[in-house]
């Protein structure tokens, strides 16, 4: 009969558990669910921004970056929806039937870093180099917001203990950190230098 043992803290004795022991999970966290719901909304805006690229700029480099952001964020939206659905949670934090309000009846807040309606309108209006500039500064702001969301998540008691969510948030943080650096470098270069 295999032993089921749970060690104690360093220097403390181990406990023997009954052979019938089953695995358990840490308590579910409201913050995890809200993080996923909020991040879906957050990612939707990034996808919306990248969708403008083809009609607003001919900058090849931006097109390529946009395609990459679009594909990774679409992929991640799918993952988050799956995570929520598997846990019996709605994929939105809005009140059913009241899209502009959260479940408590308060106006839906923007997630950190999300572009305001005014910023989005300006982005839609801009073309060429002006668009490039607004897109890059906007997406850097947007990505920095995602980093804030991840930091807030891990700073919240009881949050981030779900292994799939932990893995996802860690990856998203690493990916967006790298993309911010890429976009900062693109911003620092003048368009004429955008060749290797």
């Amino acid at each position: 009969m295999p032993a089921v043992v749970q060690p104690g803290a360093p220097g403390k004795p181990s406990k023997t558990l009954p052979p019938s022991t089953k695995g358990t999970l840490p308590p579910p966290s409201r913050a995890d669910v809200e993080f996923m719901q909020g991040m879906i909304m957050h990612h939707e805006q990034a996808v919306e921004m990248t969708a403008l690229i083809s009609s607003h700029t001919e900058n090849k480099y931006l097109q390529s970056l946009g395609a990459r952001i679009n594909s990774s964020q679409s992929d991640e939206i799918k993952f988050m929806q799956r995570w929520l659905a598997a846990r019996g949670e709605p994929v939105s934090m809005a009140m059913p039937g009241m899209p502009d309000m959260d479940v408590s009846g308060n106006p839906m807040p923007l997630m950190p870093g999300m572009l305001t309606p005014e910023q989005m309108a300006a982005l839609r209006k801009a073309k060429g180099a002006e668009f490039d500039q607004l897109f890059l500064t906007g997406m850097i702001q947007h990505h920095n917001g995602a980093l804030t969301m991840v930091k807030d998540l891990f700073d919240t008691a009881g949050a981030g203990q779900d292994a799939d969510l932990f893995n996802f948030a860690t990856d998203a943080d690493n990916t967006q950190r790298a993309e911010i650096k890429i976009m900062q470098t693109m911003l620092e270069k003048k368009p004429s230098e955008e060749k290797r």
Partner: peptide, 13 residues
């Protein structure tokens, strides 16, 4: 249906 709602309510859409 929840999904569609969520898309429709995104403030910048």
């Amino acid at each position: 249906s929840g999904l569609n709602r969520m898309r429709a309510q995104a403030p910048t859409t």
